[in-house]
Simulated assay, not measured.
Amino acid sequence: MRLSIRHDTTYDYADEVRGSIQYLRLTPQESARQRVLNWQLDLPHPVRAQRDPYGNVLHVLTMDQPHDSIVIGARGVVEIDEHSDGERDSGSPLPFLRSTRLTQADQALREFAILQCGERREREALIDLMHGLSEKMPYTPGITSVESTAAEAFAGGAGVCQDHTHAFLACARSLGVPARYVSGYLYSDDSEHLASHAWAEAWVDGLWYCFDITNGMSRPQRHLKLAIGLDYLDACPVRGMRRGGGSEQMHARVYVSPHALQTQQ
């Protein structure tokens, strides 16, 4: 399947910003299951690509001149192998056993992980964990924020894809299973608002497997991966800081659709 992506983010500030830095993980990588046919960023000025500690493609957009808005765009076409399942990775999975503030497992999460998996650590056990979390934490926008921890969202019994992923990571790592946060895009036939998405990957039998808790999916058939990390803060598509500006309004539009093959005349 070929997916066409258009992702536009606009920041408007009440007052003039004296300077800002935006860390952009908006460029997908080539892998065994996704082939980037074309991709480009639309930025206020050209920025050189680099790699972050997790191997993600990173662009650092620095705005030294005063400004009251920023427009960031990403667009392209990526071919997804719908039949690909687990992925290999040359890096060690061991760093993804570490917890962060957002993914620290409390007693309730540790007990829930044991309840779902017991002594099992195979892929089927983690699928049971995925479904258990989906039932325990129904998808509910507006209940949590980007600062909410896995423990807080789990205790509240609701959340969005970021919270589901953090809770899964907390549980998996408490069981001794390396697991990482994934940001990207999801194509869905019947929904537009799920286009920008997050899910988890866990290391089982030498491969990274997908666990999309929000949608109960254990195969990444329509998932386009942008970045990975220990949590949301490592992998979110756009993250920044600024001096001045007062209040901020952020508007994001994401469109994901099948890309029709062009036939030669």
Rank of each mutant, 00 (worst) to 15 (best):
D12L: 15
A14H: 13
V17R: 05
G19Y: 06
S20H: 12
Q22F: 14
Q29E: 09
Q29Y: 02
Q29F: 02
L37H: 06
W39S: 02
R51S: 14
H59V: 08
V60S: 14
P66Q: 13
I72C: 05
G73A: 09
G73S: 03
H83F: 09
G86P: 00
E87N: 00
G91P: 01
T100I: 05
L102K: 00
A108P: 00
E111M: 08
E111V: 13
E111H: 09
F112H: 07
A113K: 03
R121S: 10
A125C: 09
I127S: 07
S134D: 05
G142I: 06
T149G: 11
E152S: 10
A155F: 01
H164P: 06
L169F: 08
A170T: 08
A170Y: 07
A172M: 12
A172V: 13
A172L: 10
V177P: 09
R180P: 07
Y185V: 07
S191N: 14
E192M: 11
S196W: 13
V204E: 04
G206M: 08
Y209W: 11
F211T: 07
D212V: 00
D212K: 02
M217V: 06
R222L: 06
L224R: 04
K225T: 06
A227K: 02
L230W: 04
L233Y: 03
M241Q: 03
R243D: 13
E248I: 15
M250F: 03
P258N: 07
P258V: 13
H259R: 02
A260W: 00
Q265D: 14
Q265I: 13
